[in-house]
Design a protein around this nucleic acid. Sequence first.
DNA 1: CTCCATGATGGCAGTGACTGACATCAATCA
DNA 2: TGATTGATGTCAGTCACTGCCATCATGGAG
Lengths: 191, 191
Amino acid sequence: MVKMSRWSPNARGRLEQAAYELFLDKGYEPTTVADIAKRAGLTERTFFRHYADKREVFFGGAAALQEELLRALDGAPPAFSAIEAVRIAVEAMSKLMHGRRALSRERQRIVAAHADLRERELIKRATLTAALAGALQRRGVREPAASLAADMGMAVFHVGFGRWLEDPAGRELVDVVHEGFDQLKAVASGI
Amino acid sequence: MVKMSRWSPNARGRLEQAAYELFLDKGYEPTTVADIAKRAGLTERTFFRHYADKREVFFGGAAALQEELLRALDGAPPAFSAIEAVRIAVEAMSKLMHGRRALSRERQRIVAAHADLRERELIKRATLTAALAGALQRRGVREPAASLAADMGMAVFHVGFGRWLEDPAGRELVDVVHEGFDQLKAVASGI
DNA sequence: CTCCATGATGGCAGTGACTGACATCAATCA
DNA sequence: TGATTGATGTCAGTCACTGCCATCATGGAG
């Protein structure tokens, strides 16, 4: 039997939905948290029970990315080098963006326009990087190789992501990222 | 002849000094901007004329780093590969930290303890990275090699910086970073 | 010399993000 | 039946940050 609450279900999702609608409509800054809560049929106070702050509502998907990243890394053959394992993990994460290019571009447009949101995005990236480095260490990779490999992998992802959004050929992110690792190797071989 | 102002000189420096003293004394969050301004003999309103926000007072040195980074990159021999040029630039920037290890460690302790400040630090790093990538492009390096090389260089700096702060041997940052580039090459050769 | 523009500052009233404390009340469970 | 739980509401408060206007030495134009 389905549990019935006295509250409308999925408050968190309604808040996220309301936030996106309002951000697209009148922009990020002019939209107050009270506006978002009102549109979701809730109060400002309740918004802050679901999201630590106004920006967080934009980054609900980060947890799923991290799960996939770590899951894939753990699945990489033990014989793989650090950077090969990172490549597997980052490419697996990239597959999650399949079919989301238009959405991603909209979102990126908003994030790029607001320093607040860019800061938050960078911290999400740093968190992913640290998680990746930690998982590499548990795999037996020593420092600073683990941190460097993690940073390099996330750099390839980040650069690839930006190119994917602009790619006129409409390739898949996985493919852009895959190629990025080859380019990384080429650049590094210049030392 | 020296210009005499009716105001005490170096308001900006006094604000920075006051902020550090208060942050070390009672911590970052409990210190209000009004506290800082008062200690500097100014008002809150004036604080915000010198610093865009409360965090910015912590990152006054970033501009000097960027100048040195770009200056050194422009001075690198044209025949150098992208990553070699980046190495020159990042190592030059690293030299600016000479003799500042104790200070840096204090500062890092505060920054690490506050998500706000970590976010701001990441944006400073991203700004440096973007500036470096742009300078590489003006040098003739194409994308995505320029962005990848810039990201790799900043990753080496970042990882090296962390190791430098903890290094029991007390080596210079330049040396830690120099070694970091070799380790980067080793990691990348694993692809 | 007079007057005016400049520029760093102060004062003040506001907005909006975020927090702590307490109340509410349907569902659930002992 | 009665206690507990958990998501929510209400309210007052703090503090970062902004806009607007006033102040007032300095320096230059006339």
